[in-house]
Design a binder for these strands. Structure first.
Lengths: 123, 123
DNA sequence: TCCATTGGTTACCTTGAGGTAATTGATTAC
DNA sequence: GTAATCAATTACCTCAAGGTAACCAATGGA
């Protein structure tokens, strides 16, 4: 389709972009926001274990790439909502597929690991 | 489907697995091997910029998870081939979709970045 | 009066990812 | 003889990712 871009090429911007979207936190955030806007605290709770600092910077990066929109309300205490942009929504399918792969194939992965580690000990 | 696994849960093994597959090098390697077996040097060349050490350890991790098979031939100089397992092939679709997303949407991403950075200067 | 609230930001530290360079080993070509 | 070959491994180094903890600001409620 577009021979201009190639993620395998070191200097191609799409490779940088791939690095951002092919990423644990990105996937989890996009999946969490797929159903609708969420507040900062809600995302943090959904992601179960991410630190505030990392969540802040990750959200900022995704906002910068146009994947989500940040809306801060002038209230006290602060209220900030994050929602996927249309561009961000187009990413949800592929990332959801990836997450579902991880969930569906985890038994095979765990079994492969056991076998590999067992052979390593014997070898 | 399988309520037993949840990538959003901190302690779920599938979350670790997601971290491995939602990863720049994993995506590029699986895509490279999708067309057939490749030798170590061939993969290294295709990935354009990866160091030997990192490629070795990444391939080892993927082998451990059952995504690819390593075949070493007792020749001199050594010849080692890597190929996707059936399990690895099931991962190709989702990762290819992700790579294609990066290539197809890079103009929008770059534009979003420009706008974001421009506003940051003004703000 | 004082504290909890919320979404940061900052300073500081630890961990790990990833790069470079040297070395291994048997054979072939020079 | 000896240089080149290929896939690793190892030691060593650097840099960035990411965690912790303290702090902030305006308001409402105890």
């Amino acid at each position: 389709m577009s021979p201009k871009w190639d993620v395998l090429s070191r200097t191609c911007p799409s490779r940088t972009s791939l690095a951002r979207i092919a990423n644990k936190w990105t996937a989890m955030i996009v999946i969490t926001l797929a159903d609708g806007p969420q507040r900062f605290g809600g995302i943090r709770e959904a992601l179960d274990g991410i630190s505030g600092k990392v969540l802040t910077s990750t959200l900022r990066d995704l906002e910068r790439d146009g994947l989500l929109r940040r809306t801060a309300y002038a209230e006290v205490p602060p209220r900030v909502e994050y929602e996927l942009t249309p561009l961000g929504h187009t990413l949800h399918g592929p990332l959801e597929a990836l997450a579902r792969w991880a969930e569906e194939h985890i038994p095979e992965v765990l079994e492969a690991r056991d076998e590999f580690d067992g052979q390593a000990v014997r070898g």
